[in-house]
């Protein structure tokens, strides 16, 4: 298999991942899209490693680490998504806009919100 094939495939995969990140509303789907991006990189790494016949196998090792990192990220990510779901009962990211730049609410409303908590 020629290197360029692998690289093209990886680029495609990465593009799909990016699209997924931008297009999907579900937080979990977003996580999956990110996984696609990382795996695109992995594909590249492994392909390059093979191409270079790297004696240190830097690419392969790197790919392994990326897998670990991805796992850790997903772990933390899912935990956060879970928290969000518990508090908001939704995992749709476009509804999460409580924190945004908007004009200050009147002080009284602040207090009301505070008391309500």
């Amino acid at each position: 298999m020629h290197l360029s094939l692998a690289v093209l495939l990886s680029a495609l995969l990465f593009g799909v991942g990016v699209y997924g990140v931008l297009a999907r509303r579900n937080a979990v789907a977003l996580l999956m899209a990110v996984e696609l991006m990382l795996n695109a990189a992995n594909l590249d790494l492994v392909a390059f490693d093979a191409w270079f016949k790297d004696t240190l196998h830097g690419g392969q090792v790197f790919a392994l680490f990326v897998v670990v990192v991805a796992a850790a990220e997903v772990g933390v990510g899912l935990a956060i998504v879970l928290t969000v779901f518990r508090l908001r009962e939704t995992v749709s990211v476009d509804t999460l806009t409580q924190l945004a730049d908007r004009d200050p609410r009147p002080q009284r409303e602040h207090d009301a919100a505070d008391v309500a908590q």
Binding site: L22, A100, D101
Partner: peptide, 10 residues
């Protein structure tokens, strides 16, 4: 800065 994280990511 509208709060929508996907807008940010875009």
């Amino acid at each position: 800065q509208n709060g929508n994280v996907q807008a940010y990511l875009s």
